[in-house]
Design a binder for these strands. Structure first.
Length: 594
RNA sequence: GGCCCCGUAGCUCAGUUGGAUAGAGCAACGGAUUCCUAAUCCGUAGGUCGCAGGUUCGAAUCCUGCCGGGGUCGCCA
């Protein structure tokens, strides 16, 4: 790909300058005690103030430090403000409020960022922040018992964008899928296929009964098996066909899932099979490690309040001391029938990720697994001796509606709203963007009609339109004789860009790398979606001003090559941010809207 | 009952890890056709940030307790 941005934008320069001034002021103070230098690094912020009237940037340095070194915050702010102007593009600095210092930055200070953005294109904002640290992002991991539903789709998009964001910020990211291909549900899958098999053979006409999967997507699998074996499993005992149907089921269901993921443009680097882990003895090994540390014992767990008293019978079980690692109770490792619990397998799996070098692990789960995170974190802490961390991101379920009415589910699809059916209607770009316009742990209503409406109500088209407009401007340059052969870089004089709306756009372009890093640190891809919306809004506003009341703000001014070149430079820089952001979200940057 | 998530404008949601007078979009109302794409823009109006305490220069944000909604609770995954 490309090298991470190494350019020294305006922000780092301003920050360095502030730090030097702060050190000078502190050195004159009567009581420079304490860990103020550490605070300077950690707690002092430099960010655009919420109210643009306060300037371009603001720092809270004196609020954080003044008291610590025995000074009055307002006095500290006053001295700091006096010391700043004149360097790094700082035009003026004023103390404000309880001790902020507001900075005005010369518009020309943003210009290097514009050139950097244009040069980097979709890679603008890529950073080395992550230091190539390996991060494992595990997501989807849906059971191979049927096609993906919309909720899986949300998790899929979140995980994929998370991975892209972290990769963009310089982490060494692996996208991983854990296949839950062991356990009772797979037996039920095999039995469901067998039922369909008997239907296909004409010896069964009732629909699948209790506990079996109703989806008709299993019929082709059954028919395939029937064609292959000529019906020998019709009346055979379960032992004779269970394993074969399990394998066929897993294989075919993973094909379905793969196809759904492909529609979303998602590729995984690694698939890990629960069965493989178990068969290779990895579960035994993980439990042995815990045993060696005296973290496993046989005991009777207390009856959970939710469990009905009639069905609960106290039974000694093999337990992991999860309560020593922040969990609320010790957790069972072995089922009554002697098999490992799902939890034991999950321990082995997260341990396996750790042993493959992932000290940072991110899991994307559905909200219905909410109570489960503590015990897995506890297990990973125990197994890695606190060397590995697990960050679980929860996705609330998605409610799909059409014009406000719940979408009815088809038996064909197994009574779920399939991801495929939604994608067929709205396309991957709309789906991905709308899924990322919301914080993942907030519930989401997805309306199929709203989603395809092409207007400003729909943030996908809104952002894509901004990108398309810029592309359109570039296509039109050559239509003007006076602009033939315009060299945007050589002929532009960006100091011409003086309108407040233009300067605001320049600033936003310059701040983009910082915003990417903030989103990556917070591990919140949805911030990117919101930032793109804001940038698009600013661009649309400027554009419409030029198109309506203020022709002098237009990009293409045939009589004024330097100004046109400068405007094109700005437009191109905005386009770079849009491309970079959309690439993180996995959304296509449309060249034109038709 | 325990644990997890949520509660911000009539509706849907942001809120830069504790900052200044809490912001967008939708809906409502009023505007922009000499235009590089009107899939756009400008303006008006809209708030006890669920409630009550606490922490400090400063709280929508952190801590405690309530209220309300959702999820979950051995031998499913």
């Amino acid at each position: 790909m490309t090298a991470p941005a190494t350019g020294d934008g305006p922000l780092p320069a301003v920050r360095r300058h502030i730090e030097e001034a702060v050190r000078r002021i502190v050195s004159t103070s009567a009581a420079p005690d304490g860990d103020w230098e550490q605070l300077l690094q950690r707690a002092v912020t430099l960010s655009p103030p919420r109210d643009p009237a306060h300037g371009d940037l603001a720092t809270n340095a004196s609020l954080v430090l003044a008291k610590r070194v025995g000074m009055d915050p307002r006095a500290f702010a006053g001295r700091l403000a006096d010391a700043l102007p004149g360097v790094a593009g700082i035009m003026s600095a004023e103390p404000a409020g309880p001790g902020f210092v507001n900075l005005r930055i010369a518009p020309s200070a943003w210009i290097p960022a514009l050139r950097e953005a244009v040069a980097a294109g979709a890679d603008y904002g890529r950073s080395a922040m992550g230091g190539a640290i390996p991060v494992n992002v595990e997501f989807v991991s849906a059971n191979p018992t049927g096609p993906l539903h919309v909720g899986h789709g949300r998790g899929a998009v979140l995980g994929d964008a998370m991975a892209a964001l972290l990769a963009f910020a310089g982490f060494d990211v692996t996208r991983e899928y854990y296949i839950n291909d062991a356990g009772g549900q797979i037996d039920q899958l095999a039995r469901s296929i067998h039922h369909r098999y008997r239907m296909a053979a004409g010896v069964e006409d009732s629909s699948p009964g209790e506990g079996l999967y109703p989806g008709e997507y299993l019929a082709p699998v059954a028919e395939g098996e029937l064609a292959a074996d000529g019906g020998e499993a019709v009346a055979a005992a379960e032992d004779a066909w269970l394993e074969r149907f399990r394998e066929a089921g897993i294989r075919e269901m993973m094909k379905l899932i793969d196809r759904d993921l492909e529609r979303l443009g998602i590729r995984f680097d690694v698939f890990v099979s629960e069965r493989d882990l178990r068969d290779a003895g990895r579960v035994d090994k993980a439990v042995a490690v815990l045993k060696r540390r005296d973290l496993v014992y046989t005991g009777v767990p207390p009856r959970p309040k939710g469990a009905a008293e009639e069905t609960w019978e106290p039974r000694p079980q093999l337990l992991f001391r999860a309560s020593r690692f922040g969990d609320d109770a010790d957790r069972p490792l072995r089922r009554a029938n002697g098999e490992w619990t799902y939890f034991a397998g999950d321990l082995a799996y997260h341990f396996d990720k750790y042993r493959r070098g992932f000290r940072q692990q991110i899991d994307v789960w559905g909200a219905d697994h909410g109570g489960y995170a503590k015990r897995v974190r506890a297990g990973l802490s125990a197994l890695s001796e606190d060397a590995a961390g697990l960050d679980v991101k929860f996705c609330q379920l998605v409610r799909v509606t059409r014009a406000g009415q719940p979408v009815r589910m088809s038996k064909r699809d197994g009574n779920i709203v399939t991801l495929e059916s939604v994608l067929r209607e709205v396309g991957p770009d709309v789906f991905r963007f709308l899924m990322l316009m919301r914080r993942p742990d907030a519930p989401l209503d997805f309306d199929l009609l709203e989603a395809v409406r092409q207007s400003k109500d729909n943030p996908v088209y809104y952002v894509q339109y901004a990108h398309a407009r810029i592309c359109s401007v570039f296509r039109r340059v050559e239509e003007h004789g006076e602009l033939q052969g315009l060299d945007v870089h050589a002929e532009s004089d960006p100091t011409i860009l003086a309108d407040p709306r233009e300067v605001a756009l320049m600033r936003e372009v310059a701040l983009w790398p910082e915003q990417v890093e903030a989103a990556a640190r917070a591990r919140e891809p949805h911030r990117i979606a919101f930032q793109l919306s804001e940038l698009a809004a600013r661009y649309h506003a400027l554009w419409t001003a030029g198109a309506r009341g203020e022709p002098s703000l237009r990009t293409l001014l045939p009589g004024d090559r330097p100004r046109t070149a400068a405007r094109l430079l700005l437009a191109d820089a905005v386009r770079a941010v849009l491309r970079a952001g959309l690439s993180i979200l996995g959304v296509t940057p449309a060249e034109e809207m038709r």
